[in-house]
Amino acid sequence: MLPAGLVRFLTEIAEVTRFTTKFFREILRPRFEFAEFLRQCFFIGYKSLGLVAITAFIMGLVITIQSRPTLVEFGAEAWLPKMVSVSLVREIAPVITALICAGKIGSGIGAELGSMKVTEQIDAMEVSGTNPYKYLVVTRVMATILMIPILAVLADAVSLYGAYLGSNIRGVVSWDLYWNQVFATLTYSDIMPSILKTFFFGFAIGIIGCYQGFNSKKGTEGVGRSANAAVVISSLLVFIIDLIAVQITDLAGLT
């Protein structure tokens, strides 16, 4: 006999898997809720822009300032833009974006769908001739899948700008030289895998938020728990996906 905790865990995994496969089934069926999708894109993408931009800017600035002393020690100060741009584009900007979104969007979706669940709004949709999975889940997950990569690209740009300012706090790197060095350093194998993985980050954040919301237990406590679980699980998933992505790019020889 399996321990009760393991049974619960495996059941949960099975439920998440079923919920996820349903996404792929439903997205192929006709009637895509385009208006709702746009609305969700606005909330998920546009409304997170400020937060993502501020975080990315600070990360770019801070990473640059922190990396400088070590490079100076080796007399390799001129390598600052190269080193910082690679770490920002490959890793920091996409992961920071995903984590911010896991926090903001994941909890938002978890709480919104959770409260819709407990106040029977999801059932109400179903009796109003609407497939709630399509209307609520597919639109949100599609929105996170498409918006997080865009946010990540913008975060790349903003964090590189932050790094530019960071390089100029103690040293002098001209605007032209900075961007020249950045683009001479970056290659497609830096950008492509890092953008590609953000699609998966988006999918994980969206689907976990929706799953937690849809399976919210009755009462306000259940809603809170859904929001919390959405953040915790999607943040963890972001790191796991990142780990897998790094392994794959490494195996593909793109490092």
Binding site: Y46, V153, D156
Partner: peptide, 30 residues
């Protein structure tokens, strides 16, 4: 809703344009 869509569209275009420009500049360097 229209104004929201305009802002969303601007963001999406900015993001996509940045990506394309970056890819072009890198490709150009190579």
């Amino acid at each position: 809703q229209t104004s929201k869509n305009i802002r969303l569209g601007a963001m999406v275009i900015a993001g996509t344009a940045l990506l394309i420009i970056a890819l072009y500049v890198i490709g150009d360097k190579q």
